[in-house]
Simulated assay, not measured.
Amino acid sequence: MTTAALRPLAANPDLLALLGRTPLARVTTDLPCPQPGFWAKLEGLAAGGMKARAAVSMLLGARERGELRPGAPVVESTSGTLGIGLAFAGQALGHPIVLVGDTELEPSMRQLLRAYGARLELVDRPAGVGGWQAARLARLRELLGALPDAYWPDQYNNPDNIAGYA
Rank of each mutant, 00 (worst) to 15 (best):
C33R: 14
Q35I: 13
E104K: 12
Q111T: 15
L60R: 15
P70M: 09
Y116T: 01
S108I: 15
T78D: 06
R53S: 03
V100R: 02
A62W: 00
G85L: 10
A87L: 01
V100E: 00
E43L: 12
W39Q: 14
M58Q: 05
M50D: 15
G128V: 01
E121N: 10
G130K: 05
F88T: 03
R63K: 12
P36R: 10
A52R: 03
A115W: 08
V100I: 05
P34S: 06
G90A: 07
G83P: 01
G85M: 04
V98Q: 10
Q35K: 06
A55V: 08
S79F: 09
W132V: 00
K41L: 11
H95S: 10
G71K: 06
Q35G: 13
W132D: 13
A46E: 09
V123A: 14
E121C: 05
Q91H: 09
H95Y: 04
Q111S: 14
G71W: 12
G85A: 09
Y116S: 08
R110F: 00
G66T: 05
P107D: 03
Q133L: 13
A115S: 14
L113F: 11
M50E: 12
S108Y: 13
Y116A: 07
S79V: 10
Y116I: 02
A72W: 07
D102V: 00
R114S: 14
R63P: 14
E67P: 15
A87K: 03
R125M: 03
A46Q: 13
E64V: 06
V98S: 12
P96K: 11
C33P: 15
P70A: 06
Q111P: 08
A127N: 09
E106M: 05
A118T: 05
D124N: 15
V123S: 12
S77D: 14
A72D: 11
T103A: 12
P96C: 05
M109W: 08
T81V: 10
W132A: 10
L99W: 01
S77R: 07
M50G: 14
V98R: 12
G131V: 01
G37D: 01
A92H: 07
A89Y: 12
R119I: 06
G130I: 04
L112M: 08
K51S: 02
